[in-house]
Design a protein around this nucleic acid. Structure first.
Lengths: 212, 212
DNA sequence: CAAATATACTTAACACCGTTAAGTTTCCAA
DNA sequence: TTGGAAACTTAACGGTGTTAAGTATATTTG
């Protein structure tokens, strides 16, 4: 009968509604996360914001880590959008320097996103043991390619692009993380507030001296 | 009466007993921490191990952060003991390289201690706002002094010893932390397991090329 | 059209957590 | 012997992630 034809439309509407709630859960999660921070982002606080019971969330996400993983992916999208301007930078070494500046700016502007993307273990629990970390990999590949071009252009003397990219990444990450975690208290108070930028400048100066 | 004379002895015994329990709480905390890790180190689990009620712990420590701070200090003592061999290294550049190796070895051998010392925010909550972070400062001063000597000896071209020390520290920290937090999945699986050492070797190679 | 069933959601509960207030036991001094 | 301080425990508060069971609603089927 004609109801058979309606069924599809109804199912589609239902699917749309499901997706809508899934999205509103994620929106609520993002709001709580950005307003209150990682620690205060609880299933219950997300549920309260969308006026559903906490258990409803489990009908749309496997567990809390799945939500955090989704937010982590959002962070990578945001970082990616900030990095887009680099396409116009043709000189690989200039691009690398700009990349570093943007990375640090991102870590400073969105410390919670940064933490979720590069420090917290929770979002990584969502990956299967053999599953690869797509978000991280594509960002890293971009860096690696630039490093390779820097090597080819004689700007940097790394023996291996991948190891070199890791080393540069680790330096940026270490500076941001030590600052974020309050470990820069050991520094001269006058320097400690702007130490990440000072460190970056010093890093650039070191790299500059490599140019063959 | 003669009891007056005993009183002091009794009070001293009581004080010794108080210290004893304080120490056994710390021992239990350390055991749980090293066996089960940071996340599983709860007041309740520590209490269970010493067979006291959880609330007793609060008679000996202000809160959980105070215990974590005590463990964090232990970590610095342990790291300090590992660094002792450096006294015999006269060449500052050789000492710096050895320092880096020991630092990485420490982070690898005692990841939980390392986390507590350089990543977790909890132990830092125990410090007053204006209070300085003694443990971190004395470790950093050791690095800074060596960096300064490297600069003086023409091994490294940093413009400022403090910023240079921070930069070197951040590089080591970044490599260790990215590895610990599972972010090295982005690397070639063949390299990822030994990436910290590979990165360190590359770092040394870079530094070597600075020698004036 | 009524009964059966599937869907969406909630309530209640479990097992944890850090922490505090109130109560109990133990010990020493007067 | 009794009063009181000190040491410790019990019970509770408000929070966490998560699951099992129950309810209401909407859809399908006989």
């Amino acid at each position: 009968m004609y109801r058979q034809y309606l069924k599809m439309g109804i199912n589609e509407r239902k699917e749309r509604e499901k997706e809508l709630l899934q999205k509103s859960i994620l929106t609520a999660a993002r709001e709580v996360f950005l307003e209150k921070g990682f620690d205060q982002t609880s299933i219950r606080s997300i549920a309260q914001r969308i006026e559903y019971s906490p258990t409803t969330i489990y009908l749309y996400f496997k567990d809390k880590d799945a939500i955090l993983f989704a937010l982590h992916s959002e962070g990578f999208q945001l970082l990616g959008s900030k990095l887009e301007v680099l396409y116009s930078v043709e000189n690989p070494y200039e691009r690398l320097k700009a990349m570093g500046r943007i990375y640090i700016q991102f870590a400073t502007d969105y410390p919670d996103y940064y933490d979720l993307m590069f420090v917290q273990k929770s979002p990584m629990n969502n990956l299967e043991d053999d599953e690869l970390w797509k978000e991280g990999a594509s960002a890293f590949d971009g860096l690696k390619a630039t490093i390779q071009q820097c090597m080819d252009g004689g700007y940097l003397p790394f023996t291996d692009a991948e190891t070199g990219a890791y080393l540069v990444w680790a330096t940026m990450h270490g500076m941001c993380n030590l600052y974020d975690r309050g470990r820069c208290k050991v520094l001269d108070p006058e320097k400690s507030e702007k130490i990440v930028d000072l460190g970056f400048d010093e890093f650039i100066r070191m790299m500059d001296s490599f140019k063959k």
